[in-house]
């Protein structure tokens, strides 16, 4: 029975999260918590949702050639260390702290979703489309836009890696992808174009989730069948969410989801 509840919540959370552009875990984790799951279970299912979404996005991402894999492993060096520490702390963390940190993470996701910069119109095409690739030996490259390519180069790399440790810590403690912090980190601190930042975050978040799950699954946070339920639910919800996203007006979808997330954050913070 427990696995059917997890499958249903993972499906609904992933569908609404993907349709609203914030990913699934930021909805799945609080919904599980509000239906009586304890923090390690909710966080593990959340990270499984993230890992599943990254796996499902791989073919599309490789075709688009927006993600920078060299940048992802560089940032992940810090984020993965953070998520391992965060996931290790999870069982020792008082429930009230978990709810508080999760509510703060949800509000950060809302802020990132509503205040994020538009994906197009900021960078100028200066190269032919044949130049689209990651630059060997550097955290740089060019991405496709219109009929050409836009060059970019990541800056402030040591600062980005240090801040990524904090992002990973939040991710490990809350069971969410941390993408709502990682994309702004890549964009605002490391000056990576938003389209590259978002695509790189999707890939990097999968690595973050795997590092967190490496701690939580062997520790027995959830049983195998609950884990399978999370994978199935996240997959089906992700497909449905992507289809829904194509039909809904993006701004309205984000605003409805933002209101829902603020309400959930409020419920999490409400004293029991």
């Amino acid at each position: 029975m427990e696995q059917l509840v997890v499958a249903a919540i993972a499906t609904l959370g992933a569908m609404a999260g993907v349709a609203g552009g914030v990913g699934g875990a930021v909805l799945v984790v609080p919904l599980l918590l509000l239906t009586g799951a304890d923090a390690p279970v909710a966080a593990t299912v959340g990270l499984l949702t993230v890992a599943t979404a990254t796996a499902a996005a791989a073919p599309r991402q490789l075709t688009q050639r927006l993600a920078n894999h060299r940048l992802a492993v560089t940032v992940e060096l810090g984020a993965s260390a953070g998520v391992v520490v965060g996931a290790s702390l999870l069982t020792a963390l008082p429930e009230a702290w978990f709810r508080g940190i999760l509510a703060a993470a949800i509000l950060a996701a809302v802020a990132a979703g509503l205040l994020g910069r538009p994906a197009q119109g900021l960078e100028a095409v200066t190269l032919p489309s044949a130049a689209v690739e990651e630059t060997p030996g550097a955290l740089a490259g060019a991405y496709a836009l219109g009929g050409g390519a836009v060059p970019y180069r990541a800056e402030r790399i040591p600062l980005g890696m240090v801040l990524a440790v904090g992002v990973g810590l939040v991710s490990g403690v809350t069971g969410t992808s941390g993408g709502y912090l990682k994309t702004p980190l890549l964009r605002e601190v490391m000056t990576v174009p938003i389209k590259v930042a978002a695509a790189t975050t999707t890939f990097a978040s999968g690595l973050t989730a795997i590092a967190g799950l490496a701690v939580l699954l062997p520790a027995g946070a959830v049983g195998p069948q609950v884990a399978a339920a999370a994978v199935v639910g996240a997959s089906l919800g992700g497909i449905a969410g992507a289809a829904l996203q194509a039909r809904l007006p993006p701004r309205a979808a984000r605003q409805v989801l933002a209101v829902l997330l603020v309400v959930i954050a409020g419920v999490l913070l409400w004293p029991n």
Binding site: A51, A55, L213, Q225, A227, V232
Partner: peptide, 28 residues
């Protein structure tokens, strides 16, 4: 495999491990 693991309790644990492994293996 996850769907099989969800409904068939006899092979549930193995199926679940294969499902999780497939997800992690895709990204790695």
């Amino acid at each position: 495999v996850g769907v099989v693991g969800l409904f068939d309790h006899a092979v549930g644990a193995v199926a679940a491990l294969v499902a999780i492994g497939a997800v992690a293996a895709t990204t790695l």
